[in-house]
Design a binder for these strands. Structure first.
Lengths: 230, 230
DNA sequence: ATCAGTGTTGACCAACTGGTCAAGATTTAT
DNA sequence: ATAAATCTTGACCAGTTGGTCAACACTGAT
């Protein structure tokens, strides 16, 4: 971290409280912001952008509304921050395509990760869905740039698999849509699924079962080699 | 038109205006209600329940807000009416399971119908999705009664196919979820799909292509007999 | 003509919303 | 200690919302 321990010790020790104080301040700020962001994610996902009120979010975070507006000047800024978070998480998961040249490996891994995200970040998924359903008033630029590029490059990869005879000739685009819709369904429609599950959230083994079924049907559905259709 | 012209002419002529006036009144009422309902469906699907304002709906229907409240006393009543509509449409489509004993026929037909609905009633699908994502505050009873019964009975049918070896042993529940999610995705995420389609809605042939791909992957995915996996 | 029932609407209101602000509390640096 | 910087918050405001209402218009029956 610091290159020269001896000479700059004083400097360091003098800086250390500074760092501490900074980190404390930053810590307070970071902590509060995190509280608010978590509360906001929950509220936005449950009520949508319009349905959510800054008062609800403030209550959820345990701070007065005025304090929320100290950290996040407007409701829209808060919302954007959350959208950014979600999108970066999704993009991270999408690297499975690059790390595996084998379609079975690549798709299995991708589906696994997307299912995991649906379980660990259901709020984010729902906020995204809400945004799209409202015509993406805030994230339209994402759709037209990052998402479009990502999609096209993965379509090319899938088409490559088809050309090499590794999977059946399906339309790569619709294969992607299927993976997106199915995996996100377990987050977006969790309430419906839970209700049909007797009112209880899926257990870990039930999640595993869901994941296996999704992978089985999709991989078999595209005739991916290495998968036995029993 | 009128059976006995001579004798009851007076009676008929006295009733006819009555019927006319009734049908005219009813016609006015029906027409206005329909206008408002259609506008409301659009607005609710785009902005969600909270985001939608009665003013927007009134504007969309081309009536003053006060007139809207003459026909529908509250925003919630209007919303319920629309939810009812959607649910009945979906239930109608779901009869494919009863009309076909062959899994390929039954599932193909069901998927076809659900895709058709996604194209013809995208607003309704989005409103449903919105409701579920908000924890189904209004339609929880539907989920726990009608939908649960419907789901269980179709699960039994699918399990029957498995027992008879007509399809692979998959979890019927997750097969249903997959069909629901994929087909509804084309309505709920239409904006995203359109954007990735160059900003234009899918053409009729593109819809057909989507439908074929969905059916192909799912039917092949469950090893439904009678489907060649080329 | 007149009356009753139905439909129409501008003006209005109480409740709520996102956001502000000034005054004070707390922490850090000197 | 004290000054500077950051954080906290009750009270407040202007704009918007769902819903009301009284006055008016229209239609058809007598």
């Amino acid at each position: 971290m610091s290159g020269n321990e001896t000479i700059q010790k004083s400097t360091i020790s003098s800086t250390e409280p500074d760092i501490q104080s900074n980190s404390l301040k930053a810590g307070i700020r970071q902590k509060k912001e995190l509280q608010i962001l978590e509360a906001a994610e929950k509220v936005f996902s449950e009520f949508g952008y319009h349905g959510a009120t800054t008062q609800m979010i403030a209550d959820g975070a345990g701070v007065p509304k005025a304090n929320l507006h100290y950290y996040f000047p407007t409701k829209l800024v808060l919302y954007r921050r959350i959208i950014d978070q979600i999108f970066s998480i999704w993009l991270d998961a999408a690297q499975s395509f690059d790390e595996n040249s084998d379609p079975v490996q690549a798709l299995s891994s991708y589906i696994d990760k997307k299912m995991q995200i649906s379980r660990s970040h259901p709020h984010g998924s729902r906020i995204w869905a809400n945004e799209i359903m409202q015509g993406a008033p805030i994230i339209q630029d994402y759709l037209e740039t990052t998402l479009r590029e990502w999609t096209n490059s993965r379509i090319a990869i899938i088409q490559g698999w088809i050309d090499r005879g590794l999977i059946d000739p399906v339309d790569p685009r619709h294969l992607l849509y299927m993976i997106w819709s199915v995996t996100q369904h377990y987050a977006d429609f969790a309430h419906q699924i839970d209700t049909l599950n007797g009112g209880k959230p899926l257990s870990t083994s039930q999640w595993g079962n869901a994941c296996e079924n999704v992978k089985k049907i999709i991989l078999a559905g595209i005739g991916a080699k290495g998968v036995d259709i029993k």
